[in-house]
Simulated scan of single mutants.
Amino acid sequence: MMKHICLLIVLIYTLNSCKSDSLENINNTSTLEEEVIKLSPNRPNLNISILIDLSDRINPKKYPNPAMNYFERDLGYIHSIVQSFEWHVRNKRSLKINDHIQLYIDPEPADNDLNEKINSLNITFTKNNAKRELIKRTSTLYDSISNGIYKSAIKDGNYIGSDIWGFFKTNVKDFCIQKDYRNILIILTDGYLYHRDSKLKEKNLSSYLTPQDIRRFKLNKSDWKDRIQNQGFGFIAARNDLEELEVLVLGINPDAKNPYEQDVIIQYWSDWLTKMNVKGFELKTANLPANMDKIIKEYILNKSI
């Protein structure tokens, strides 16, 4: 009996030791990751804007996905974005902190309470308020309010589209660009553009693109690229003065019925952002947040040098 008790004590001690080692490894990994960030010299001030597309692409009934719903992927992307922002601020010298993050929906919601919550996500840290605990609360605040935004939109069910084209035309310069900052606009969208109040067309250029348009323009065949180049398909350039803006598009989700859909969407966006003289851009498909986390953090942190 005494022998069994001794064996049990040894087993419990061993398991606790393994657990402690595992937790220590996790903590060491986190610390190491932050130490690596600390080694990045003279990072610029960040001005991050997040624009979310609340069209029916987030409808879990219309576009179900057994791996993870698309609105949940968005929430995961937002968490990675804001966590990157936190790490950036926490690892700067206090005197150099002057960083900003904000979130936009276009058109703005009719719900006044929701608008107040969105306004609370307009956050600036300077040397006067950059307390460690306050900085660390940023992702918690974003997680909570973003979750409420998506659930409210899904519950309402009135998907009128997202006016991304109109946002570039009217607001992007004023809202998303500040002098002496690294200005990053991160757009969460499936890559299609449509809003009932932004339906412009100039020959084969337009302010919108839907799966139906791609089929109608006969861009669902192997000669899609030739047709775009020879017949001038694409988005109308909303402006041409965005030299101080970087754009990261997350969540591109092409219609699976057309094997060339993703290529067409990326070509449209690439041509559009190039015509608007965007400083740099990357376009990413709707992968799981766990797979996108590293990509997002590397984009925000490793390029902030």
Rank of each mutant, 00 (worst) to 15 (best):
F167Q: 06
K169Y: 11
K169P: 04
N171C: 07
K173V: 12
D174S: 14
D174W: 01
F175K: 13
I177M: 05
Q178R: 15
Q178V: 07
D180A: 13
D180Y: 07
Y181S: 04
R182H: 07
L185S: 01
L185V: 06
I187S: 02
L188H: 02
L188K: 01
D190M: 11
Y192A: 07
Y192S: 04
Y192W: 10
L193H: 14
S198C: 11
L200S: 11
K201H: 10
K201W: 06
N204K: 09
N204P: 04
N204F: 05
S206R: 13
S206M: 11
S207R: 01
L209V: 12
T210P: 00
T210H: 04
P211G: 08
Q212A: 15
Q212K: 15
D213I: 07
R215E: 15
R215K: 15
F217E: 08
K218H: 09
L219Y: 00
N220Q: 11
K221F: 08
D223F: 04
W224M: 06
K225E: 13
K225R: 12
I228K: 03
F235P: 00
I236S: 09
A237Y: 04
R239I: 05
N240D: 13
N240L: 08
D241K: 07
E243F: 11
E244P: 00
L245K: 03
L245T: 02
E246C: 04
V247N: 01
V249D: 05
G251F: 02
P254Y: 03
K257L: 12
N258F: 05
V264K: 00
V264W: 00
I265W: 01
I266A: 09
Q267T: 14
Q267M: 12
Y268Q: 09
W269E: 05
L273K: 03
T274Q: 15
M276T: 12
M276A: 08
V278Q: 02
K279F: 09
G280A: 15
F281W: 13
